[in-house]
Protein backbone atom coordinates (compact mmCIF):
# COMPACT_ATOMS: atom_id res chain seq x y z
CA UNK A 1 0.00 0.00 0.00
CA UNK A 2 1.33 3.42 -0.93
CA UNK A 3 2.17 5.90 1.80
CA UNK A 4 0.26 9.14 2.12
CA UNK A 5 3.24 11.02 0.70
CA UNK A 6 3.47 8.67 -2.28
CA UNK A 7 -0.22 9.06 -2.98
CA UNK A 8 -0.01 12.82 -2.81
CA UNK A 9 3.04 12.94 -5.08
CA UNK A 10 1.43 10.62 -7.59
CA UNK A 11 -1.78 12.61 -7.57
CA UNK A 12 0.03 15.95 -7.96
CA UNK A 13 1.83 14.62 -11.03
CA UNK A 14 -1.40 13.31 -12.43
CA UNK A 15 -3.28 16.57 -11.81
CA UNK A 16 -0.59 18.73 -13.36
CA UNK A 17 -0.37 16.50 -16.40
CA UNK A 18 -4.11 16.29 -16.92
CA UNK A 19 -5.33 19.71 -15.88
CA UNK A 20 -5.26 21.37 -19.29
CA UNK A 21 -7.09 18.49 -20.91
CA UNK A 22 -9.66 18.44 -18.13
CA UNK A 23 -10.18 22.21 -18.24
CA UNK A 24 -10.57 22.05 -22.01
CA UNK A 25 -13.16 19.30 -21.66
CA UNK A 26 -15.02 21.20 -18.93
CA UNK A 27 -14.96 24.37 -21.02
CA UNK A 28 -16.32 22.63 -24.10
CA UNK A 29 -19.09 21.14 -21.98
CA UNK A 30 -20.03 24.29 -20.11
CA UNK A 31 -18.92 27.05 -22.50
CA UNK A 32 -17.62 29.08 -19.57
CA UNK A 33 -14.05 29.17 -18.30
CA UNK A 34 -15.18 30.16 -14.80
CA UNK A 35 -17.48 27.21 -14.57
CA UNK A 36 -14.86 24.97 -16.18
CA UNK A 37 -12.36 25.86 -13.46
CA UNK A 38 -14.98 25.19 -10.78
CA UNK A 39 -15.79 21.83 -12.31
CA UNK A 40 -12.16 20.74 -12.62
CA UNK A 41 -11.34 21.80 -9.06
CA UNK A 42 -14.27 19.76 -7.73
CA UNK A 43 -13.57 16.80 -10.01
CA UNK A 44 -9.95 16.58 -8.93
CA UNK A 45 -11.00 16.86 -5.28
CA UNK A 46 -13.37 13.95 -5.74
CA UNK A 47 -10.71 11.99 -7.58
CA UNK A 48 -8.19 12.46 -4.78
CA UNK A 49 -10.77 11.39 -2.22
CA UNK A 50 -10.82 7.93 -3.85
CA UNK A 51 -7.30 7.98 -5.29
CA UNK A 52 -6.31 4.79 -3.47
CA UNK A 53 -8.97 2.88 -5.39
CA UNK A 54 -8.23 4.29 -8.84
CA UNK A 55 -6.23 2.25 -11.31
CA UNK A 56 -3.51 4.66 -12.56
CA UNK A 57 -3.99 3.47 -16.14
CA UNK A 58 -7.69 4.25 -16.07
CA UNK A 59 -7.37 7.42 -14.01
CA UNK A 60 -7.66 9.93 -16.90
CA UNK A 61 -10.87 8.33 -18.18
CA UNK A 62 -12.22 8.08 -14.63
CA UNK A 63 -11.67 11.77 -13.93
CA UNK A 64 -13.08 12.76 -17.32
CA UNK A 65 -16.21 10.92 -16.31
CA UNK A 66 -16.33 12.86 -13.05
CA UNK A 67 -16.02 16.08 -15.06
CA UNK A 68 -19.03 15.12 -17.17
CA UNK A 69 -21.02 14.25 -14.05
CA UNK A 70 -20.03 17.51 -12.37
CA UNK A 71 -21.14 19.39 -15.47
CA UNK A 72 -24.50 17.58 -15.43
CA UNK A 73 -24.88 18.36 -11.71
CA UNK A 74 -24.17 22.04 -12.40
CA UNK A 75 -26.90 22.01 -15.07
CA UNK A 76 -29.38 20.91 -12.44
CA UNK A 77 -28.80 24.01 -10.33
CA UNK A 78 -31.58 26.51 -10.81
CA UNK A 79 -29.22 29.46 -10.73
CA UNK A 80 -27.04 28.09 -13.49
CA UNK A 81 -30.13 27.37 -15.53
CA UNK A 82 -31.23 30.96 -15.13
CA UNK A 83 -27.79 32.24 -16.05
CA UNK A 84 -27.90 30.16 -19.21
CA UNK A 85 -31.48 30.86 -20.17
CA UNK A 86 -32.75 29.20 -23.26
CA UNK A 87 -31.93 31.53 -26.09
CA UNK A 88 -28.91 33.31 -24.70
CA UNK A 89 -25.45 32.97 -26.06
CA UNK A 90 -23.13 33.05 -23.10
CA UNK A 91 -21.40 36.41 -22.84
CA UNK A 92 -18.36 34.65 -21.49
CA UNK A 93 -18.12 32.33 -24.47
CA UNK A 94 -15.20 34.23 -25.93
CA UNK A 95 -14.79 33.96 -29.66
CA UNK A 96 -11.98 35.01 -31.92
CA UNK A 97 -13.28 37.12 -34.77
CA UNK A 98 -13.37 35.15 -37.98
CA UNK A 99 -15.65 34.38 -40.83
CA UNK A 100 -18.81 32.61 -39.93
CA UNK A 101 -18.76 33.75 -36.34
CA UNK A 102 -22.47 34.54 -36.40
CA UNK A 103 -23.41 31.12 -37.69
CA UNK A 104 -21.12 29.59 -35.12
CA UNK A 105 -22.81 31.51 -32.33
CA UNK A 106 -26.18 30.30 -33.56
CA UNK A 107 -24.93 26.71 -33.63
CA UNK A 108 -23.57 27.05 -30.12
CA UNK A 109 -26.81 28.67 -28.96
CA UNK A 110 -28.76 25.76 -30.47
CA UNK A 111 -26.46 23.31 -28.69
CA UNK A 112 -27.12 25.12 -25.41
CA UNK A 113 -30.84 24.48 -25.79
CA UNK A 114 -30.46 20.71 -25.74
CA UNK A 115 -31.00 18.70 -22.55
CA UNK A 116 -27.69 18.46 -20.62
CA UNK A 117 -26.98 14.77 -21.32
CA UNK A 118 -27.71 15.20 -25.03
CA UNK A 119 -25.51 18.27 -25.15
CA UNK A 120 -22.68 16.49 -23.34
CA UNK A 121 -22.89 13.54 -25.72
CA UNK A 122 -22.61 15.79 -28.78
CA UNK A 123 -19.74 17.77 -27.27
CA UNK A 124 -17.78 14.59 -26.55
CA UNK A 125 -18.45 13.13 -30.00
CA UNK A 126 -18.14 16.22 -32.20
CA UNK A 127 -15.91 18.62 -30.31
CA UNK A 128 -13.71 16.18 -28.47
CA UNK A 129 -13.77 13.71 -31.38
CA UNK A 130 -14.20 10.73 -29.07
CA UNK A 131 -15.36 7.43 -30.47
CA UNK A 132 -18.83 6.13 -29.69
CA UNK A 133 -17.29 3.61 -27.29
CA UNK A 134 -15.13 6.18 -25.46
CA UNK A 135 -18.09 8.53 -25.21
CA UNK A 136 -20.22 5.72 -23.80
CA UNK A 137 -17.58 4.94 -21.18
CA UNK A 138 -17.34 8.54 -20.05
CA UNK A 139 -21.10 9.03 -20.07
CA UNK A 140 -21.61 5.77 -18.21
CA UNK A 141 -24.06 4.41 -20.77
CA UNK A 142 -24.19 2.01 -23.69
CA UNK A 143 -22.87 2.69 -27.19
CA UNK A 144 -26.44 2.42 -28.44
CA UNK A 145 -27.52 5.19 -26.08
CA UNK A 146 -24.71 7.40 -27.37
CA UNK A 147 -25.84 6.81 -30.94
CA UNK A 148 -29.47 7.55 -30.17
CA UNK A 149 -28.58 10.65 -28.10
CA UNK A 150 -26.46 11.93 -30.99
CA UNK A 151 -29.24 11.34 -33.50
CA UNK A 152 -31.85 13.00 -31.31
CA UNK A 153 -29.54 15.90 -30.44
CA UNK A 154 -28.58 16.60 -34.05
CA UNK A 155 -32.22 16.37 -35.10
CA UNK A 156 -33.28 18.83 -32.43
CA UNK A 157 -30.45 21.21 -33.38
CA UNK A 158 -31.49 21.00 -37.01
CA UNK A 159 -35.01 22.06 -36.04
CA UNK A 160 -33.76 24.90 -33.85
CA UNK A 161 -31.42 26.21 -36.53
CA UNK A 162 -34.12 26.04 -39.17
CA UNK A 163 -36.56 27.89 -36.89
CA UNK A 164 -33.94 30.45 -35.92
CA UNK A 165 -32.98 31.25 -39.50
CA UNK A 166 -35.78 33.76 -39.97
CA UNK A 167 -36.23 35.64 -36.68
CA UNK A 168 -32.61 35.77 -35.52
CA UNK A 169 -30.92 38.85 -36.83
CA UNK A 170 -27.19 39.33 -37.11
Amino acid sequence: MKSKEQQEAEFRSFALAQRDALRRQAYLLSGDWFEADDIVQKALTKAFAVWRRIDPVGAPAYVRRIVVNMYLSHRRLAWVRRERASDDVSPSRSEHPQEGVDLRLEVVAALDRLPPRQRATLVLRYWEDLSVEDTAEIMGCSAGTVKSQCAKGLGKMREILADAAAPVRA
Binding site: R24, Y27, G31, S94, V107, V108, W127
Partner: peptide
Protein backbone atom coordinates in the same frame (compact mmCIF):
# COMPACT_ATOMS: atom_id res chain seq x y z
CA UNK B 1 -21.78 22.43 -38.74
CA UNK B 2 -21.29 21.46 -35.13
CA UNK B 3 -17.67 20.43 -35.76
CA UNK B 4 -17.00 23.78 -37.43
CA UNK B 5 -18.52 25.59 -34.47
CA UNK B 6 -16.07 24.10 -32.00
CA UNK B 7 -14.85 27.06 -29.93
CA UNK B 8 -11.21 27.76 -29.35
CA UNK B 9 -10.57 25.81 -26.17
CA UNK B 10 -6.94 26.69 -25.62
CA UNK B 11 -6.82 26.79 -21.83
Amino acid sequence: LLRQARPDATP
